[in-house]
């Protein structure tokens, strides 16, 4: 129980997200109507992506400080799950955009940021796979991971401020990287934050499962 309570928590939170997310009364804002419920799925995925790449960053830094093979595996797998989350976030966003903005792709700065994020992390995997030596692969990939993260985060802070965005809080030069958290309805907030926690925990859960597979594979190779 001490080990897996958070998996149960993740399950309950997501169950709550799905039930409450589809049933609560949502405010009518602009032309959003019922699509606003996508907020409980699309936005938490990006929160999850950011949290998971941050975890990946921490393991990359740990690897450079103390080269242990495990740290490298952790960094890779968290980055991988983050990329999957990012893909899902992009897809849910595109479906949402299709109904509210009229087209799945609008060259919105946050859509561009999302696409760039995916490209950055796909490049990370290409870079990893281009090397065969395990130690060198781990070190070079860790260096790239850290470098990319520290450019990626300022970018998603800067880009929405440069270009007008269709996202909430994106008109004029007042655009902001988040989503105007203050105008979130109190009832929606009751579902939104648990949803963020639920999706992030699910991401961690998937990563740990993949890590267990990786560790087993490594052991098989050792014997």
């Amino acid at each position: 129980m001490r080990q897996y309570w958070w998996k149960i928590l993740s399950f309950i939170l997501l169950l709550y997200t799905f039930i409450a997310g589809f049933l609560i009364k949502v405010p009518t804002i602009g032309n959003l109507y019922e699509t606003i419920r996508n907020l409980f799925f699309h936005v938490p995925m990006w929160f999850g992506q950011l949290i998971l790449v941050s975890v990946s960053l921490v393991y990359s830094i740990l690897y450079l400080r103390k080269p242990q093979h495990n740290y490298d595996l952790y960094a890779t797998e968290f980055a991988r799950t983050a990329t999957v989350m990012g893909c899902l976030g992009l897809l849910t966003g595109m479906i949402w955009a299709n109904y509210t903005w009229g087209a799945p792709w609008n060259n919105d700065p946050k859509q561009l940021g999302a696409a760039i994020a995916l490209l950055i992390y796909l490049a990370y995997f290409v870079l990893r796979n281009s090397m065969t030596d395990i130690d060198k692969k781990a070190r070079v990939a860790a260096v790239y991971n850290i470098f990319a993260y520290f450019i990626y985060v300022p970018m998603i802070m800067v880009l929405p401020r440069l270009v007008e965005s269709l996202h909430p809080g994106g008109k004029g030069v007042e655009g902001n990287p988040g989503f105007g958290g203050n105008d979130l309805d109190p009832t929606m907030r009751m579902v939104f934050w648990p949803a963020v926690a639920g999706w992030t925990l699910l991401g961690v859960w998937i990563s740990t499962l993949r890590l267990r597979v990786r560790f087993l594979e490594e052991q098989k190779h050792l014997h």
């Binding site: 561009l112 950055i120 790239y144 450019i151 800067v158 880009l159 270009v163």
Partner: peptide
């Protein structure tokens, strides 16, 4: 490889 890694990362500067 430089293009793959660099083009996404250079976008903020370029914009």
């Amino acid at each position: 490889m430089m293009a793959i890694m660099g083009f996404p990362l250079i976008i903020p500067q370029l914009m």
